[in-house]
Design a protein around this nucleic acid. Structure first.
Lengths: 200, 200
DNA sequence: AAAGATTGCGCAATAT
DNA sequence: AATATTGCGCAATCTT
C-alpha cells in the first residue's frame, strides 16, 4: 500500500547539509549503528568536540560548569566580578579596571601582550571584524538550517517507521494465515515441502 | 532476530526534552505527518518564528539578509560603521562617537532615553547581568543537548528503519514462497480458501 | 599565511 | 519580577 519509494524529501536535503566532512570522533558513541547502516555515520558536528575545547575568552574560565554544577558564574569569586568584559568594546583592550591574571592558567599562554597590538580603530581591524561578523551570521544561519533539517528528518523517519511497522504487521498476519492454511492441508494430505520454514 | 523491543534509548530522552509546549506554528509545514503519527508533532522551537522577529540591537537592523542576500553587514553604509558596539561595554552606553538616529525607524521607539537609566556599574545592573549570563549559559546548554538528542534520535530511527526494511524483505520473500507452494498444491488438488488474498 | 568557518561568551531586547 | 530565548558582535580557534 502507498508509495513505497519514500525516504526522499527531507532526508535528501539533510544529506546535502553535510559536505565532505570526515569528522574523526562522533559526539555520540562513534559507531552506534555501524552494523546495517550505510549512509548513517556522518552527522552532527560534535559541538564542543572537534577541538574547540578550552577556549579562553580574553580571560580564563575553567571553573564553574563541568559536572553537574548549576551554571556557576565562570568567575566564581576570585575577586568580585571579573566579568563585565566578555564580549566587546575594550577599545584597545587591556585598559579596564582589574585584569587579574589569576595563577590558575597553564604555565604557557599568559602575558597580556596582544600579539602585535592589532589596535582597534584600525581600518584593518574593522575590516576583519566586519568580515567575521558576516561569517558568523552565515555560519549560524547554516547551523540553524542544519538543525531544522535534522529535526524534519527525524520526524519523517519516525513516520516512515510507523508505516513500516504497520506493513510488517500485515505481512506477518498474512504469513500466519497462509501457514495455517498449509498446515491444515498438510494434515489433510501430508506431502513434501516443509511449511514451517519457507524462507527463514 | 535481535531484540524487537527497541525504539527506546535515545528516543526516550528526546521526548523528555520537550516539556509541554504546544507551539502553535511549526517551522516545517505544520502537520507534516499527522496521518499515522502519534507522538510525532511537538518538536523544534521555530527559531525565528515564535515572535522573536525584528529585534533591534540597540540600533536598527532591518536591511541585509532577507531573501537570498549574502549576509550583508546589517549597517549597510548609512554612515560608515555604526557597528562596533553590538555586544558590550557601552559602559553607561550612549557615549561613543556617532549615535546616528537614522530616520529609518518606526515612528515609535526612538529617543535614546534608556528608560530610567538603569546605569551600569549599578550593583543591581551587574546582578541582573550575571543572572542573565547564567540563564543564557543554561539555555544554550539545554539547546545543545536537545540538538544532540535529536541527532541521535535521527540516527537511531534510521538504523531502525533499515532493520524494518530488511524484516519486510524477509517476510515478503517468505510469503512469496508460501504462496507459490500453495498455488502448486492448488493446481494439484483444487480446494477451498483463496491463496491470492490471505490477509490483504 | 591568510581568509573563512566555528563556537563560547556576554549584552540587550524579548518572551514566557 | 524573574527566568528563558535569541540575534548580535567579539575573540579565540580551527579549517581550508
Amino acid at each position: 500500500m502507498m508509495s513505497d519509494s519514500r525516504v526522499s524529501s527531507v532526508i535528501q536535503e539533510w544529506a546535502s547539509s553535510y559536505p565532505s566532512q570526515a569528522h574523526s570522533l562522533n559526539p555520540v558513541s562513534s559507531n552506534q549503528v555501524a552494523s546495517t547502516g550505510q549512509l548513517v555515520q556522518m552527522d552532527m558536528i560534535p559541538y564542543g568536540q572537534t577541538q574547540g575545547m578550552m577556549r579562553v575568552g580574553t580571560e580564563d574560565r575553567v571553573a564553574g560548569q563541568m559536572m553537574g554544577l548549576p551554571y556557576l558564574p565562570y568567575s566564581t569569586s576570585c575577586v568580585g566580578n571579573t566579568s563585565s568584559m566578555g564580549g566587546t568594546n575594550h577599545h584597545q583592550s587591556h585598559s579596564s579596571p582589574q585584569q587579574d591574571f589569576s595563577p590558575f592558567l597553564l604555565p604557557s599562554m599568559r602575558s597580556p601582550v596582544p600579539k602585535r597590538s592589532i589596535s582597534k580603530d584600525s581600518a584593518e581591524y574593522r575590516m576583519r571584524r566586519e568580515r567575521n561578523n558576516i561569517a558568523v551570521r552565515k555560519s549560524r544561519d547554516k547551523a540553524r538550517r542544519r538543525i531544522l533539517l535534522t529535526q524534519q528528518r527525524a520526524v519523517q523517519l519516525q513516520d516512515e517507521n510507523q508505516k513500516l511497522q504497520l506493513r510488517i504487521g500485515q505481512l506477518t498476519q498474512e504469513l500466519d494465515t497462509l501457514k495455517h492454511i498449509l498446515s491444515q492441508r498438510h494434515l489433510q494430505g501430508g506431502e513434501d515441502s516443509a511449511v514451517g520454514e519457507a524462507g527463514m
